[in-house]
Design a protein around this nucleic acid. Structure first.
Ligand SMILES: [Zn+2]
Ligand SMILES: [Zn+2]
Ligand SMILES: [Zn+2]
Ligand SMILES: [Zn+2]
Lengths: 139, 139
DNA sequence: CTTGACCTTGGAGTTAGGTCTAAGCTTTAG
DNA sequence: CTAAAGCTTAGACCTAACTCCAAGGTCAAG
């Protein structure tokens, strides 16, 4: 049974973060001592590791809460549910990547067009491209 | 000279957004009428289009403010400045893409491993992978 | 016994980019 | 003339995931 500071240190988090996870319904420590201190056991630590692994693949805390509730009563849920959550997240991530790839290619084009020298920016092609009424230039 | 609603409609924004841009120092309309109504002229609209183009390549409002201040007094700035801002943004975007690509491949692996069927989730390989003390499984 | 580290709570603050509300003018259409 | 639409302001609210603070209780070491 670890107190919050030890538990946090073991997992590389701050105590505040564990309190925040508790308030969010993600991880309620299994017990308290007489003084009201939170006490975390091995199962709590396993659950926290689940949370951290889920975070590391990009799930939001809300999605993790869903996954945890499925895990808790897995017999009453089907395989389709975690898969759906995963596939929806995958789609979001892919959409975001596509958006950022467009940013990247536009930025690369802007950067390439600019000499980057020390002379006046009054002819800078980055500023000109952003000013252009001709929208072709950016995409 | 357009009032705020017309200006917003012309650019596909809400009036609130224009007020927000003004409060942020991005776009202060060139005049007001006797009643205190904001009046935007063609130069204001050009500036707003600069802002929108800069947004469309991924610049934050803060970065756009910098670019605008360079644009305003371009003679006193060098080409190196817009290029530096652009290259820093490019690096941020590339870092974010890399992070999301790791998410994507992990999520794809999770999704592929799960049957997605209607039977019980108690053997679901997504939940198992997130539970695994073996960290290899996720990356 | 006291000092300092650790814990409790509720609640506020952070970032970014808006979005909305309320109370009260102004303008415009019928 | 009147009603509706549009404008003004200050300031609150939104998301996400924390992060920090204050005031006070607990606990271990010296
Ligand atoms: Zn140049
Ligand atoms: Zn340049
Ligand atoms: Zn299955
Ligand atoms: Zn499954």
């Amino acid at each position: 049974m670890y107190r919050i500071g030890v538990m946090a240190a073991r997992c590389g988090l701050k105590a505040d973060t564990l309190r925040f996870y508790e308030k969010s319904g993600l991880l309620v420590p299994s017990s308290r001592n007489e003084a009201g201190y939170r006490l975390y056991n091995a199962a709590d630590e396993a659950k926290l590791n689940f949370i951290l692994r889920a975070k590391s693949v990009g799930f939001s805390l809300e999605e993790i809460a869903e996954l945890l509730s499925i895990r808790l009563e897995s017999a009453e849920h089907s395989c389709a549910e975690p898969k759906l959550i995963t596939d929806m997240k995958l789609q979001q991530v892919e959409a975001k990547i596509k958006e950022l790839e467009i940013f990247r290619s536009s930025l690369q084009k802007l950067s390439d067009s600019c000499c980057g020298g020390s002379e006046s920016a009054s002819h800078c092609s980055i500023l000109e491209a952003l000013d252009a009424s001709d929208k072709e230039a950016l995409c």
